[in-house]
Amino acid sequence: MTNANFNIYVLIKQVPDTGSKAGVNPDGTIDRARAKRMMNPFDKFALQAALHTKKEYGGTVTAISMGPPPAKEILLEAIEHGADAGVLLSDRRLAASDTLATSYALTKVIEYLNTEKNHPADLIFAGLQTTDGDTAQVGPEIAERLGVMQVTYCEDFSLEGTTLVARRIVEGGHTVVATPLPALVTVANAYTPLAYKSLRGAKKVQYLARTPEVEAEYISVIDLDVVNADPMLAGLKGSPTIVGKTWKIGEVGGSCVVRQGQSVANMVTDVLDATPVDEFLNKKEAVPV
């Protein structure tokens, strides 16, 4: 089965690095201009899944992203890890896209690549969700627009010919599903973490940095016109939802009775006396003192 020539896409996004202090305002909001940037951590699992598929079953991996020009960084990072090429959809008219508008634009990119390659995608991997949006909606919305099968919350998978067998996390356990390709898979962070960059990939990216004309062969930056997308269906205009208002999660409380500096036994007795613990005590079995 290693001779299959799967056309594999992986959808990745550049997000603000909230782990770094840079660009994070004291109230927790993010100043995107000052914030450090990183590949969405969930997407690293998706990239690993795509690269694993290529290695085990054969094919090519194209990383696809949508965002402002610096998002090219994560496409190069994907190539360092072993992806074959990267495509960035970058267009000012994409600003203020909600999930439905994002799914439209990315669907147009996928359809464009399918035509370019003369081979529709067999597998599309995406991260479960992003750290800056937390919706987990864009993947399934793309699957619906493309009319392909989907497996979300995937924590492990294998291919039996052109049947995808996937373990899907559900509340209190998991299910194992089998589906024909093509399919879109959102990969949960219970999957294998992204492997180290390959030496070959890292050398390739170093070479690309020195030779922009060759870089253009590996990384294409395209806009809505290239993929024949209707700007009315993208960005703010194509978004059925809007952020109406935001506010801080209100400060609460101030009524806490804090015990401090007394003996531990006294403090505990005081708190237990003040709390209706009695109703919840486990009286079913005698607990030895």
Binding site: S255, C256, V257, V258, T275
Partner: peptide, 8 residues
Amino acid sequence: GFADHGIV
């Protein structure tokens, strides 16, 4: 700041 009872 928001618990009901605290022990330091």
